[in-house]
């Protein structure tokens, strides 16, 4: 039988000295100064503490069982979601119980405490400054030379520490040539990631593969896309590149000129390369000009030729630094300064 609210507290535990039916009297009996312990501020927030106690007890019991279940699940190496659900339920129930206890079964307040202002008085400041700064000042002024020497020693230490530390981190970029040059050389065979050199009849029209120089398979900077655009004939993407695209083949750097992602999605119908990162589109027929998106420059084109055995080879390295720009990349065609 559900107990009538308002009577269960005294009725069930028997500890209340005043018992049921004295609610009004109970408070007035304690009334006095506004901060007597009978003041409403000291009572719990719950309308019906017994009910909340019950809820908290259920929560703790649930967490006990769920913790045990988590232990068992771990023991039998249950699947991840069983572990997580038991643990999550256990922790949440435990937390719920604690929160409800604090929120409803403790003096509801509000209570206050004084707060000092942060700003100090001029007198306080003066006293501190007098003690701290003046002492120091006198000590320092007497020994000016020592102070300067100490500072100098410290400065040298700082500089000397910074150098080996920073210099040991990595090579200087302008000495490393990878910013300006890739591993493509005159005569390098276009080689697939498996190490197979590509021959002129290996790829169908509309086909695309990623190629590397034979000595840099998988290289992040030499990666190049090779596309067969048509069956025969040289493709001229720009004046000056008359011989670069033999037998319907075009090769471009695979490193996006925007932020360096691999430009690998080829749309045969429109003859465009798409960069998956920020959707730059490059039109391969016109020298990989960017036609959409944030890429600022065309993908550099690798000049090709077909040797007497039918292998595709590079005429030379790219004629400009590949990939995204950087401060020391001089102008649109920059090499090392």
């Amino acid at each position: 039988m559900p107990e009538a609210p308002g009577t269960d507290g005294a009725g069930t535990d028997g500890a209340g000295t005043e018992g049921a039916g004295t609610e009004g009297a109970g408070r007035s009996g304690h009334a006095g100064a506004s901060v007597s312990t009978g003041a409403p501020q000291f009572q719990v927030a719950a309308k019906n503490p017994r009910r909340v106690e019950g809820a908290v007890a259920v929560a703790f019991l649930a967490s006990l069982l769920a913790f045990a279940a988590f232990g068992a699940a771990f023991w039998v190496a249950a699947s991840s979601w069983v572990l997580g659900v038991t643990l999550g339920v256990a922790l949440s129930a435990f937390g719920f119980g604690l929160v409800a206890w604090g929120k409803y079964l403790m003096p509801q307040g509000p209570f206050e405490e004084p707060r000092p202002q942060m700003a100090t008085t001029p007198a306080e400041k003066q006293e501190f400054v007098a003690d701290f700064a003046t002492r120091g000042k006198i000590a320092v002024e007497r020994r000016g030379v020592l102070v300067k020497l100490m500072g100098a020693a410290g400065a040298v230490l700082g500089v000397v520490l910074a150098f080996p530390l920073i210099r040991s981190l990595g090579p200087r970029p302008n000495q490393e040539q990878s910013l300006y040059h890739t591993k493509w050389r005159k005569g390098a065979k276009l080689t697939s990631i498996e190490g197979r050199a590509v021959r002129v009849d290996d790829i169908e029209v509309g086909g695309i593969i990623t190629v590397f120089p034979p000595d840099d398979l998988g290289g992040a900077f030499s990666q190049t896309v090779l596309i067969r655009v048509q069956q025969t004939g040289d493709i001229v993407t720009e004046p000056g590149r008359e011989t670069w695209g033999p037998h319907g083949y075009l090769a471009y750097s695979k490193v996006c000129t925007h932020a360096g992602c691999p430009v690998g999605l080829y749309e045969e119908l429109t003859q465009q390369l798409l960069c998956p990162c920020h959707q730059s589109l490059f039109d391969i027929g016109t020298g990989a000009m960017p036609v959409f998106g944030p890429a600022p420059r065309p993908l550099p084109q690798l000049p090709l030729y077909v040797d007497s055995k039918g292998y595709l080879r590079a005429q030379a390295d790219y004629d400009e630094p590949i990939g995204p720009g950087f401060w020391y990349r001089g102008g649109s065609n920059g090499g090392p300064q």
Binding site: P5, G6, T7, D8, G9, A10, D13, A15, G16, T17, E18, G19, A20, T22, E23, G26, R27, H30, S34, V35, S36, T37, G38, A39, P40, Q41, F42, Q43, V44, A45, A46, K47, N48, P49, R50, M106, P107, Q108, G109, P110, F111, E112, E113
Partner: peptide, 28 residues
């Protein structure tokens, strides 16, 4: 409710007296 300064009262005796209040904590 007006806030109460904690150092003016004894929170311990107030909490101990909770039983006396029966189910009176009706203030939300």
């Amino acid at each position: 409710l007006e806030p109460v300064a904690l150092d003016e009262v004894d929170l311990v005796s107030a909490m101990a007296a909770e039983g006396d209040q029966g189910t009176e904590g009706v203030y939300q």
